[in-house]
């Protein structure tokens, strides 16, 4: 099919082309809902079965990082939305600026995620052979925790053992939590990385002045994708970070 200007050959009009692209993007996004949905279901069932261990494991993740990341990501959604607006009203420079801002915020998010993953690595909370919920309490000083925090963790672990029947069960069930934690945040981060790649492409195109009020479908569709990834995080944050913080 030949392409005439912005119009691909299979379409009759630009309107039809835009409509198809938007519809296609939404259709893709609902497949993503179901894709993440399988993980959310797995999480829900395990969270229900192992409520105590899950809330304990959740408390070993730093709330502050999660909250900051939520703000960062929602901020990036704002800048993304603003770049769509700029394209629609024909402010070509602003499109580029907002896209770059979005990319920066997205990178900040991934960086913070990296710090969090690193903490979990140090604490031996990465599922696998070296997984050990008792690592920090057994090796004071190895983890970045204060003495009070460690003492608190010790008492909570004791209580948990009595509830679920010993340290082996505590380890097994919290490993499930962290498998889900890494599965869900990892898949989310992968989507962010893909999104960052798309943003890079948009920035290059935008610098060439490609996006105009007449034709800005890529900006809009990448925007839809980016907001969707934001929504996934909006759910991940309370589910993974905010279990029984009281």
């Amino acid at each position: 099919m030949h392409r005439t200007g912005d119009l691909y050959g299979q379409f009759e009009t630009l309107e039809q082309q835009k409509e198809s692209a938007t519809l296609g993007m939404w259709t893709f996004l609902i497949t993503e809902i179901l894709f993440f949905g399988g993980l959310f279901l797995t999480y829900t069932i395990n969270r229900h079965t192992y409520a105590d261990v899950f809330s304990f494991s959740s408390r070993t993740i730093k709330l502050s990082w999660g909250a900051i990341n939520t703000v960062v990501l929602i901020g990036s959604s704002l800048t993304m939305a603003m770049s769509v607006w700029s394209a629609q009203v024909g402010k070509k420079k602003l499109v580029t600026i907002f896209l770059i801002l979005t990319l920066i915020l997205g990178t900040v998010f991934l960086g913070i995620k990296g710090i969090e993953y690193h903490d979990k690595y140090v604490e031996h909370h990465i599922p696998g052979a070296s997984f050990d919920m008792y690592f920090c309490t057994n090796n004071p000083g190895a983890c970045n925790l204060t003495t009070e925090e460690l003492a608190q963790e010790r008492t909570e672990l004791k209580e948990l053992e009595d509830k679920v029947g010993g340290p082996v069960a505590v380890n097994a069930h919290s490993q499930l939590f962290f498998s889900l934690y890494f599965g869900m945040t990892g898949l989310h981060a992968l989507h962010m990385i893909i999104g960052a790649g798309l943003l890079l492409w948009l920035i290059v195109e935008s610098m060439r002045g490609r996006f105009s009020p007449r034709w800005n479908t890529p900006v809009e569709n990448v925007g839809l994708y980016w907001h969707f990834v934001d929504i996934v995080w909006i759910y991940l944050f309370p589910l993974l970070y905010l279990i029984d913080r009281h």
Binding site: S77, L78, M80, A81, G223, L224, H227, F228, D230, I231, I234, Y235
Partner: peptide, 9 residues
């Protein structure tokens, strides 16, 4: 999520 879907998206 609803706010994001309705307005941002």
């Amino acid at each position: 999520a609803i706010l994001v879907i309705l307005f941002f998206m």
